[in-house]
Design a protein around this nucleic acid. Structure first.
Lengths: 133, 133
DNA sequence: GTAAGTGCAAACGGTTTGCAGCCTC
DNA sequence: GAGGCTGCAAACCGTTTGCACTTAC
């Protein structure tokens, strides 16, 4: 098997650019379907399959992060410089972005301590917001 | 809405006891299907639907935690007294349990700061362990 | 006896894939 | 011109649900 190093360069087609742009504009995480809908509404229809393929490619290339919602849906966000987490209201769904330098540091320390490298983490807080309490 | 307090007592049927027992014996997380297979192998067949319904009930009752694997499968573990998180090797799947008092505290603080109450959190660390590096 | 619990199989919903045609290099 | 890329629709797969039957109380 020849490759395994840098994969194919990934052609800059209209669809790929559109998906990439949509990801850039979205504030937080978006699901594949949301991206598809947003683009369709904007007059740049892209097949759902293509959205999934593009997202998979971007994730592979390390340009986007992928997470799972509580009910198993995949959601994506462009890998932004600032890494943050979400505090979500389980009643109304409102979400607040929070940063946790302390957590980041702790994660790194724990990983090292156990001999792990190249560690990433996922953290999610779920509760009831003031309005819904 | 009347309820929200103690729900129905949950009848101790053969199936429920079996699922509960299987969860107790499993070291880490198990998927619904794994539980079903394990029970079937042991000669205690339980319908898949029943396994799902039982797990949902146990989760609702706070007796088990539910998480999602990277590919969207739901996995469950009995809620042990000590709340801990997992550091998983993305190559061999080995998992180490870690505790993070700092994280727990941080989560509580952030939640309060934003007016959220009754907050729970999920945290997962994924990396490459020493053996696989 | 009654309502909760169970099994089966069909329905679901998000994701993946096969294939014929289109488009970038 | 060749091979990657796209769209469509069918296939997948874990999970949920409708319904008739069984069982705990």
């Amino acid at each position: 098997m020849p490759e395994s190093r840098s994969e194919a360069p990934l052609r800059p087609t209209r669809q790929r650019l559109a998906v990439s742009a949509a990801l850039g504009e979205a504030a937080g995480f978006s699901s594949a379907q949301e991206i598809r809908d947003a683009l369709a509404r904007r007059g740049e229809p892209v097949g759902l399959a293509t959205v999934y393929r593009t997202l998979a490619a971007l994730a592979e290339a390390g340009e986007v992060d992928m997470m799972r919602t509580e009910d198993g849906e995949a959601i994506y966000r462009r890998c932004s410089g600032t890494h943050h987490h979400h505090l979500v209201c389980r009643a109304c769904g409102r979400a607040v972005e929070v940063e946790g330098p302390a957590v980041e540091r702790w994660a790194g320390a724990v990983a090292t301590e156990h001999g792990f490298t190249d560690v990433s983490h996922t953290l999610e807080l779920v509760g009831v917001c003031g309005d819904c309490a």
